[in-house]
Computed example of a mutant assay.
Amino acid sequence: MSADLLGIATIDILLFTFLVVTAVAIMHLRNLFAVVMLAGVFSLLSASLFVTLDAVDVAFTEAAVGAGISTVLMLGTLALTVREEKKPAHSVFLPVLVCLVAGAALIYGTLDMPAFGSADAPIHLHVAPAYIERTPIDTGVPNIVTAVLASYRGYDTLGETAVIFTAAIAVLLLLGAGTRQSGKDGSKE
């Protein structure tokens, strides 16, 4: 393994470790404010992991929606509710069992995947060469990445842009909601 791949793998393992530690901390906390803050940290760690995996568009969406608008909405909800979670009346055995079964199914689903960074992965043998060959003819765009994002995946990119735009507008509305003062007659100034 080259030094670059070793460094990237080390960063990925470190980020995954932080994700697991954050998730375990969220599970054990009863203070809902701390849970909301750690959920925002979890989203930022996920966005960082997406960047290391070269999925910058997904990382940007995760940062804007997961860490941005979700945290603001949860804090707004927290302002209207209690600060401490009540102790559950039921056993934690069933939820843990469901998580273990779902986790085992996810791990089982990854057993057929090619090795990380493998040059003979199906995407490198079939999909990438087709894009490289057909992009200038199909789209007329010389940059393959731009062609894939704007043409082949145009609707997906439009959807991601709409989500980010909506999240930004919602954050601006929430931050600016309390800035106007009411006059004596109750009307906004």
Rank of each mutant, 00 (worst) to 15 (best):
M1W: 04
S2A: 07
G7A: 10
D12E: 13
I13N: 15
I13E: 15
F16D: 14
F16H: 12
F18G: 06
F18Q: 06
L19P: 07
V20S: 08
V21A: 06
T22F: 05
T22E: 00
T22M: 04
I26L: 05
M27W: 12
L32E: 06
F33C: 11
V35N: 02
V36W: 03
M37Q: 14
L38V: 01
F42S: 07
F42V: 01
S43R: 02
S43W: 05
L44T: 09
L49D: 09
L49E: 09
D54N: 12
V58P: 14
A59Q: 04
A59V: 04
A64S: 08
V65C: 00
G66P: 02
A67L: 04
G68R: 02
G68M: 03
T71Y: 04
V72W: 02
V72M: 09
G76E: 05
L80E: 10
E84Q: 11
P88E: 00
A89L: 09
A89T: 09
V96Y: 08
L97Q: 04
V98P: 01
A104R: 01
L106A: 12
D112M: 06
M113H: 08
P114Q: 01
A115G: 10
G117H: 04
A119Q: 14
D120P: 06
I123N: 09
I123P: 06
H124G: 15
P129G: 02
Y131I: 05
I132Y: 11
E133H: 15
P136R: 06
P136F: 04
P136T: 05
T139R: 03
T139S: 11
G140I: 00
P142C: 02
I144H: 03
Y155S: 10
Y155L: 13
D156Y: 15
L158T: 13
G159M: 07
E160W: 12
T161C: 05
A162Q: 09
A170Y: 02
L172T: 15
L173W: 10
L173Y: 11
L175A: 12
A177R: 06
T179C: 09
R180S: 09
E189Y: 12
